[in-house]
Design a protein around this nucleic acid. Sequence first.
RNA 1: GCCCGGAUGGUGGAAUGGUAGACACGAAGGACUUAAAAUCCUUUGGCUUCACGGCUGUGCGGGUUCAAGUCCCGCUUCGGGUACCA
Length: 881
Amino acid sequence: MFPSPSGAGLHVGHPLGYIASDIYSRYKRLKGFNVLHPMGYDAFGLPAEQYAIQTGQHPDVTTKKNIARYREQLDKIGFCYDWDREIRTCEPDYYKWTQWAFIQMFNHYFNTKLQKAQPIELLINSFETSGTEGIQASCTEELQFTAPEWKSKSEKEQQETLLNYRIAYLADLKVNWCTALGTVLANDEVSDGLSVRGGYPVEQRVMRQWSLRVSAYAQRLLDGLNTLEWTDSLTETQKNWIGRSEGAELRFDIKDQDYNFEVFTTRADTIFGVTFMVLAPESELVKQLTIPDQALEVENYLDATKKRTERERIADRRVTGVFSGSYAINPVSGTEIPVWISDYVLAGYGTGAIMAVPAHDSRDYAFAKYFNLPIIPLIEGCDVSEESFDAKEGIMMNSGFLNGWTVKEAIQKAKDYIAEKQLGRLKVNFRLRDAIFSRQRYWGEPFPVYYKDEMPYMLDESRLPLELPVIDKFLPTEKGEPPLGRAKDWHTEDNFPLELCTMPGFAGSSAYYLRYMDPQNKTALVSAEANQYWRNVDLYIGGTEHATGHLIYSRFWNKFLYDLGLVCEDEPFKKLINQGMIQGRSNFVYRIKDSNTFVSLNLKDQYDTTQIHVDVNIVSNDVLDIERFKNWNPEYKNAEFILEDGKYHCGWAVEKMSKSMYNVVNPDDIVEKYGADTLRLYEMFLGPLEQSKPWDTNGIDGVHRFLKRLWSLFYKNNTLLVNNEKPSAEELKVLHKTIRKITFDIENFSYNTSVSAFMICVNELYTLKCTKKSILEPLVILLAPFAPHVAEELYRVLGNNETVCDAAFPICNEEYLKESIVKYPISFNGKVRFMIDLPADMSKEEVEKIAMANDQTEKFLEGKAPKKIIVVLGKIVNIVL
RNA sequence: GCCCGGAUGGUGGAAUGGUAGACACGAAGGACUUAAAAUCCUUUGGCUUCACGGCUGUGCGGGUUCAAGUCCCGCUUCGGGUACCA
């Protein structure tokens, strides 16, 4: 577990996953495993810094305060964390290793043939002997130079060239710039053109920024998903985010110019239907292909596009574009096709240029309709008069040598043709982008980087950690530099300036699980011994919000360390469970307009009312505590009420849990009122772990009663009832049935049904008036992972001097569960009519015979002869009429 | 638009293709109590019947099966992810 400690503290939704993993940890320990169950804090990041800007307090101070508050709240719930392993990303001892990993990434490149990271020296050697000839390296831009050319480059030029290949690299990139936050953001930190944190507008800007070459690992990140025990929806989300698509890169010549450019397409089969080409406005080709006559119009278009933010472009789907004046030549059919410029083509994907096939692509279709460009249908029988036909099915027509083939066959034929005639090359494209790694902020890891002649160099590892400097204000400098620009002496001993940006939030959270294995290690992130012992995370419980961020970065980071031989597992998280979100359940009161009179829920329709949120903590089972309501807000001091049966019933709705909805429930309050065990059990009892559900404190009495009833098996009027009598067969059956159910449920993370099983067990033992130690002791051990406090107490009461945590988990003995009698439901045409008790070992034939001979059978046969009789041994009898 | 995941009483939910609604909340009635709280007991999907019982019922429409909440096909609807990815 690795939460970001916020100032608001924990609400009742946060501990859900923690409780689930605590139960599993305690269970595994009882089963004899050495369990690593740690807790730490993802403590760097924007919220702490925003708060610091507002209050002037150092983020380190508020972060420490928040962590202390979290710890206090966590301790109340009774987690079995190994606090000796606690880590915090903002501690120099920890972020030393974040900086260290960055240095390694700078010093490596990705070999595409071996599909792994290799030292950059190997690449330099290649350059020295044969230039770029035959190198297979992931890069920002395809470069070509010879060995002599390389050698003739200056130091600065060589360094600049190497950045093109390094896994951690500095480059001029189009980045997501958020003015309000004053920083760039990674793709997963932007949604709908707004920052995920804060919801501020984000615009595209070209800036020189640090990036991690995550895209190099795209194929491995995709392949690795097959080896993981993750949910289908999560692997699906990652697959989409990685976005692998197979296609071809096709070369188009320009008419009357000695120039050509490439486009990427997955539909090579539609080459005969290309009626225009489109360039992204940001594409470098625009300058090249715009003819003088069109220059003014193109310029105007580019200006207009630049002014629109990403968000405006998304919100407004108007078709826009401008003709460049140039014509491309279709490499297969030889036709001349106009080249347009439009912002529906993205510069960042493929080559930033497309071949448009309006008949079979809805975006191209919209564009063609708007600008009156020709639409050529290529599939027999398709109707493109109203919309494009995007499906990859049907028989080809209007397509020369592809005519008569199915689309799937035609795609392959066209690709073969392209490869054979060398019109382009087959290519796999990924949607996954490199991760922008610079943040123009203070509260993050400083880069271990200094600049010499404007080129970045890494600090020597012996200089790590490079600690965050003290600054006077957490704002950009007057010159617009990041906050670190305010630091005094922010340079090396040789006076080279240090990097002013800091690392993003995901830097520190990408390898934290490795540090848990060996948290005090001074010489390595994790020792080989510790890593080989613990390997990777067996069970990871977290929310789906990490699907495209943290869970991609961590996997990338881990794979990189794996390539370097520093960790022994290729994937960091073996099994992953997404706990559902706990939503808020809000309550409402209804005020009659222009009055201070409130009317109960079912009478509100008789009046003209306004719905007002009311604090859920002064409502119980949707009934308002009127006295507390009056004191809740001075405005309601003299409020009057129209009641139903003497009560004020509130309305309710499921909403986000937030302060403004007055529906936040604090775990501390629940613990105060009912105890930690009740909170733990109730959180689990609410429903399946993976499912989202509203928090509704109604119902918590049920689990609390269960605990009291359990207690009553041990004590009556403070007198201990437990004895050493021999258990009856029935009592043993109740116990072992429960052992079997609980074991199965824990292994399957079905904790809500475990709680029911405990209730059933205690109810049955209560009915049997069972006070026998031989039954109650295993039950207490069984319950210990769920309700550790009461279990510990009762375990001691039973005469044990050791902690219940060191007990052995009970094992189900099937012998006690064998039934001698089976209740057979007798059904007619699938409808159950009556039951008969029969010996469990009775044969099919005998069961059938007795069922048919039964008095009641005759009645339900209605004089007919049965067509068929189905006997499922131990289950059911069905008589078909 | 595309991709996932849901839909079961008044509520949260349970059910390896085999008695739908376990368990719990709430509600109603009762016991104990001067009273309340706590505790205990009974009832509680709907319709129908004095009753025994009967009919009906897992979002909707089809299908497979001796048997479907569960499997298949087609919809409706709610949540989540993603969004000009060529």
